[in-house]
Design a protein around this nucleic acid. Structure first.
Lengths: 338, 338
DNA sequence: CTGTTAGCGCGTTCAA
DNA sequence: TTGAACGCGCTAACAG
């Protein structure tokens, strides 16, 4: 079956292709009568616009690329869902790609983004990404960086105040009365936000009237390895710390199983606070208290910024959203021991 | 900065555009010397192929659409990740869309799929989808249906043997000695696979030497509503059943919290078996036993079928993959009571 | 093996 | 408002 083109529609409606094109693009320059005639003709012929041809001509594809490290992390899948909703509202489509925290893979994706003439990119980068993204700029493809910004991030960005998140965590543990805490994080010097969290956490616990003991451990980004590392760390302790802070999604997934293996219960033996919410934290018994990142807000603000950039406007100030403390059953107040 | 076109490359390399095109498409008809010259020219000018133009001309976009009900469900996100991997290997891009189990939304997505001239579609449908998909066929867009097939599914499909899954569940509960079981499912007559699961479950428990009591409850697809319904159902029981089977991801998310609210422990008060694995089931204490669907296999077989269809070949027999029983701590054998 | 050229379907002119 | 002509960048087909 031959697909009808805009020329066929124009003929059928007895108008020029120019007029038909104006109707398709909802340009308010065509008389109402003609609009109806064209639309009727399109419906009769089962016309379906060839976006490809339109894009080639207008050099706007209506496609947005979303690049995230992976999709297993609930935070990223929430961002994806939200972006997909926003795209549908704007009649855009989203091209989805994962970096796998891998530079070569990302490079291939960025290449595709350029050659497909994607209108814009929202990326949660996984490493020192500036050189790779610079190439996109050469092609005039707007970029918004979400969540993981680096210290000297040159792109419009929407992120969470990770330092505040760390502080929030520290303060909460202080408030429940913990004076002996363990911090599980990761030591990737290229992830500035992890350093931010830790700095915030340390700052909150420093210079307290009562001395607070903080021990820190760095875990692998591989959950299985991380669990073993966490277990080793726990075994080296003579008794459970009063509280544990897992400074990332992955840290939680490593430390919680390690605690189970070690046989220390929450909140009986130790309090537990997590960074970055995900479903398992809500379903566990007791629920795990968490510092949560506002994924939907991040997505929608990133989207807005990108739309502005695509329209040739300014993206505006970089956004730094506030995290939220969600208290569940894992961090009750510690009774003062005699 | 003006983007170089293939004409510029051809000029720079002193070859014809046809030859340059052949090099870009890795067609093995160009002499090695020229290939090198063209590639050098492309590198020097920072050439980036305009896939849009190529697609318009060749009517192949190299874009695959993946349409799933949502992304929160771990099963779908695993499928997405796998598809994305496969796409990268084949230098294709994936357009991602969710139906939200909503027909109007899906229709809009399918419209976009057509007008963007996507090469093929892998869909996990959410309702009686045949009329909507028929339109795609008119446009010659190959379709592979994954996971949720309907009884009379006319499209090439890759699914799980949901009846076998139900049987597997029933048999496992039988084997651990349960004679008094509760089944939590959903009653959506348009979801054939849910009926299949239940039929399989019932079949496994019927005609046993010892009579097995099976009580069934239908839950809403909304988890919060479902939890309340499950709680009401549990409260109506005078004592915990020996075993519970939650026949879907959503059912688990409803029933597990309801059990906590009711105060019945697993596996102390009742055994628990789930259908469809997700992370929280592994992290809970004890881990929840589950009938798992092979998401990666589903994705890769769907991909293969789609590639065949795109190449104009037969998709081959519809695939019906076998589910897998993963025994964790929630279904220990029930000691015979005196 | 390489060169030439028409045209994929649409959007944008510009004169009428 | 209209209509015709051109070109976006590339590939297919064919000629050499």
């Amino acid at each position: 079956m031959k697909k009808p083109t805009i020329v066929d529609i124009a003929k059928r409606a007895s108008v020029s292709v120019g007029t038909a094109s104006n109707v398709m693009n909802r340009r308010p320059v065509v008389s109402k009568a003609l609009v109806e005639r064209v639309e009727a003709a399109a419906a009769e012929l089962g016309y379906n616009r060839n976006t490809l041809a339109a894009s080639l001509r207008s050099s706007r594809t209506g496609v947005i690329a979303l690049v995230v490290p992976n999709i297993e992390n609930a935070f990223f899948s929430e961002v994806l869902q939200e972006i997909e909703n926003l795209a549908l509202d704007s009649e855009k489509s989203v091209m989805f790609m994962t970096t796998g925290e891998d530079e070569a893979r990302t490079r291939r994706h960025l290449q595709a983004i350029i050659s497909r003439r994607v209108d814009g990119l929202i990326i949660v980068p996984a490493f020192d990404y500036q050189p790779a993204l610079a190439e996109l700029e050469r092609y005039g493809i707007p970029i918004v960086v979400a969540d993981r910004i680096s210290q000297k991030n040159p792109f419009p960005s929407v992120s969470v105040d990770h330092k505040a998140a760390g502080e929030m965590a520290g303060r909460h543990l202080l408030e429940i009365g913990a004076r002996d805490v363990v911090y599980f994080g990761h030591s990737r010097p290229d992830y500035w936000i992890l350093k931010q969290r830790k700095d915030g956490f340390s700052a909150a616990l420093a210079n307290q009237p009562e001395q607070v003991s903080v021990r820190s451990f760095s875990l692998s980004l591989d959950v299985f390895v991380g669990k073993e590392q966490a277990l080793t760390a726990l075994k080296a302790l003579d008794k459970p710390p009063q509280a544990i802070f897992a400074a990332s999604n992955l840290a939680s997934k490593s430390v919680l199983p390690a605690l189970q293996a070690k046989g220390w219960s929450i909140p009986g033996d130790t309090r537990f606070l997590a960074m970055d919410d995900f479903e398992a934290l809500t379903m566990m018994q007791p629920g795990i208290s968490v510092i949560s990142q506002p994924s939907a807000q991040i997505a929608s603000q990133a989207w807005q910024k990108l739309m502005h950039l695509i329209d040739g406007e300014e993206a505006g100030e970089n956004a730094l959203l506030q995290p939220e403390l969600i208290v569940r059953g894992s961090t009750p107040v510690i009774a003062a021991s005699a």
